[in-house]
Each structure stands twice: as structure tokens, then as C-alpha cells.
Design a protein around this nucleic acid. Structure first.
Lengths: 222, 222
DNA sequence: GTTATCATTTCTGTATACAATCTTGTTGTT
DNA sequence: AACAACAAGATTGTATACAGAAATGATAAC
């Protein structure tokens, strides 16, 4: 693996995990020493992360981890609505229906587990990742997949900022299951609308969680 | 301006203009000498273009100008449908209506000119660019704007491959005018649906033009 | 006490040298 | 004649050195 790839992956992971919080200024020399790569591949990683929207290139003065606010979360959901409704529609038209029928069963089986705390949450996230992969495969559109993957990185960062409780995860699982069902039966309109509903509710849940989290952080600062 | 920016811009322009046709292999040394920059900023430009989807990084063996086929055009339109319908919807909710009323007048005045050949086509493209800028300003979503700008670069490349005739441009102008009208009156649903209609028809027109163009190229090869 | 200017220092941007990997062509063997 | 192995060449990836720009802090003048 290339040094630039390692630097990119490490920094992305740390940003998504919140270990490098929003606003953190990253110097080239500093980070190249920390990550054990020279400045050239590190700059390559920086550039990719700027293109991804994870870093902002603060006019000449270093790069900064991009802000995460209620506004940016809303912006993210607005893009998700456009892209994921379309993706669901296309998936319903093109997907291997058997695969989505199996996925439906997996959601069904997972429900009881999801309410069971930490492990349940992991099962939920793994199942969601599986759903995302199935969508990517189904839509047969590399360009859209690239765009979706970037959106998901941002979403992962948002989720880390404010993990949901089991009850909310179960809600999300039920909503997603309906999307899976629509795709499994080739109902494109339902797939799109169910995605819309899911994103609307998810936006509410995430906003509430982020609001709490941001309030907590502000309290700590004060 | 930085050397890496110049290299990026020059290469992007050349790819969009078709001067660097699909499939062209670009060597680092070769291109850095041609563009008068060293390999470091050139690699930066290459990486950005790969991220944009304009170049493909052919496993170790140089970068290649990405292919443009009927399939990739369709993929592009599928992403456009998702993003631009959403953008139109948001613009209808948030835009400065006066600005779009003025834009509507400009479309109205341009119609007679568009049928007038070369100059008319330029007027059409300038007006379209103005429309795009107005959308970007209206939606107030930097993340979505970034994504839209990339899509537009790809579309510019497609258009260069197969320029339309005046009659088709007029059709497109009328369709776009309806979108402008919907935004000017705050009709989000109409804005989204008019965008859908426009993209559907535009896809047909562009596909036909690209098909002709590709046939011509194949003839030349044979 | 405040402000402006200049020097110091740090950081970014670019060029280039070096190392490692992958291609390709040639030669030898079956 | 076909295939494999090896060597020569080219090309990518990384490190580092150098130049130029920008920020910071100090000093002096008002």
C-alpha cells in the first residue's frame, strides 16, 4: 500500500471517528512526522480530503478539519435525498431481487437483536453497510456510486458525533426494511418514497442527537 | 496562480474540449514538460482529475482520459436527475424570485437569437451558465454545489462531443424557461417535475447526437 | 498607550534526485 | 515454434532541498 493511501486512510478514519475534531489545524510537517510519511504523499492525502470535503484549505494557512453543524447536517441530507431516492429507484428497476429478499430476512432476524444494546447496534450498522453495498451493486452506475460513497463518509462522521439509542435504531431498521422490500418487489416508486420517508425521519433523529451533543460540548467549553 | 492549478485547469479544458480524446495515455514526465511544470504539481493535477472522474488511474501504468460512451452519458443523466431535481426544488423554496423573473425575461428575449446560428448558440450557453449560477446561489448548500459543478464539467465534455442544432437548443431553452418560471413563482413541485422533463428530453437529444458522433468516429477509424 | 513598520521565523509550493516496481524485449530452452 | 526467464529500460512513488510567501512578534514612533 502506498504511503499516500495510508496517510489518507488514517486521517479519514481519525476525522470520521472524531479523534480529529472539527476546527483542528493540521500542519504538513507536524502530520507527516506523526504519520511517518514525507510531505509529498501527505499533501496528496490532504488534497484528497479537501476534495472530499473533510478538510478545508484555509487560504494559505494550513488545512482545517471541516465544521460539523446542524446546518451542514441538513445540507448533507438534502444531497442524500436527491441521490438516494434516485439510487433506490434505479435499484428497484435493476437489482437481483433474490438478493434483496435475503436482505429483507436479515433485517427481520436482526430486529430482536438490535434492542440488545452495544452488540445490537453493531449488527444494525453491519446490516446497513450490507444494504449500501447491495445498492451500489444494483444500480450499475460507477459515477453515482462514487458520489454515494463520499456522502456515506460524511454520514459516518455525523453518526459518530451522536450515536443513536436502540429504539431509534429499530425505527431506522424498519424504515430501511421497507425500502428493501420495495426493491425486492421491483416497486421503484415505493422504493423512492420509502427512502424519502426514511431520510426525513433519520434527519429528525440525527438532528435531535446532534443538538444534544453540541449542547454538551458547549457546556464543557463554558 | 499555483502551478498545480494551472496544470489542472489546462488539462481539464483540454479534456472537456476533446483535444485530449478518451483513451489518451498521459505520462507524468511527458505532460510536465509539455505544461512547463515539474512532476510534483502535475501529479496534484492528475489526482484531482482522477477524483473528478476525468482521468482513470490505470493500475500503475499511467493515467488515461476516461471513456465517454452512451452508457456513461446515461449514468451521468441518472445522477443529474437525482441532484438537479432536488436542486430545483430547493431553489423554488429559497430563491430570490425577482432574480429568476429577470432570468425568465432573458430566456424570452434570447429565443429569437438562438435560431440565428453560431452566435445564438453562444447566447444559449451563456444563459445556461447564468441559470446554473443562479441555482447555486439559491440553494444555499455548498456541498451540493460542489457536486453539481463536477456533474456540469462532465456535461460540458459531452456537449463538446456533439453540439446540438438551433432547433434542439430552442427546445432546451423552452424547457429551462419553465423551470425558471416555477422557481420564480415558488412552485417546488413544478420546478422538480419540469427539471425531470427537461433532463429526459435532453438525454434523448444528447444520446442521438452522441450516437451520430460515435458512428462518424468509427467510420473514420475504419 | 496605541499603531505602524520591519525583521524573524515558519509554512507552503515547487523542483529534483533516488529507489522500487512494473514493462517489455530478447534470448535460451523445450 | 512457443513459452519461460532474465535483463534493460521506463515509470511511478517517495524523500528532501530550496525558494518564496505569509504570519507573528518586537521595536520604534507618534
Amino acid at each position: 500500500m502506498r504511503a499516500s493511501d495510508r496517510a489518507y486512510r488514517k486521517l479519514l478514519d481519525e476525522i470520521v471517528a472524531g479523534e480529529l475534531p472539527a476546527g483542528t489545524v493540521l500542519g504538513e510537517v507536524e502530520q507527516s512526522e506523526r504519520l511517518g510519511v514525507s510531505r509529498t504523499p501527505l499533501r496528496e492525502a490532504f488534497n484528497r480530503l479537501v476534495a472530499d470535503g473533510m478538510l478545508d484549505s484555509e487560504s494559505g494557512r494550513g488545512v482545517v478539519v471541516s465544521q460539523l453543524s446542524l446546518e451542514t447536517v441538513t445540507e448533507l441530507y438534502e444531497v442524500r435525498e436527491g441521490l438516494e431516492e434516485q439510487a433506490a429507484r434505479l435499484a428497484a428497476q435493476r437489482a437481483d431481487r433474490e438478493l434483496f429478499k435475503k436482505l429483507w430476512d436479515e433485517f427481520e432476524n436482526s430486529k430482536s437483536l438490535i434492542l440488545g444494546g452495544e452488540i445490537g447496534a453493531n449488527i444494525f450498522y453491519e446490516l446497513n453497510a450490507k444494504f449500501d453495498d447491495a445498492i451500489d451493486e444494483a444500480i450499475q452506475n460507477p459515477y453515482m456510486v462514487t458520489t454515494l460513497k463520499n456522502v456515506r463518509n460524511h454520514m459516518a462522521r455525523v453518526r459518530k458525533l451522536a450515536r443513536s439509542n436502540p429504539a431509534r435504531l429499530l425505527e431506522a431498521a424498519n424504515e430501511t426494511q421497507l425500502i428493501v422490500e420495495a426493491i425486492a418487489t421491483g416497486d421503484a416508486a415505493l422504493a423512492a418514497h420509502a427512502t424519502h420517508v426514511h431520510l426525513h425521519k433519520s434527519h429528525s433523529r440525527v438532528s435531535a442527537a446532534v443538538r444534544e451533543q453540541l449542547a454538551k460540548i458547549n457546556k464543557e467549553v463554558a
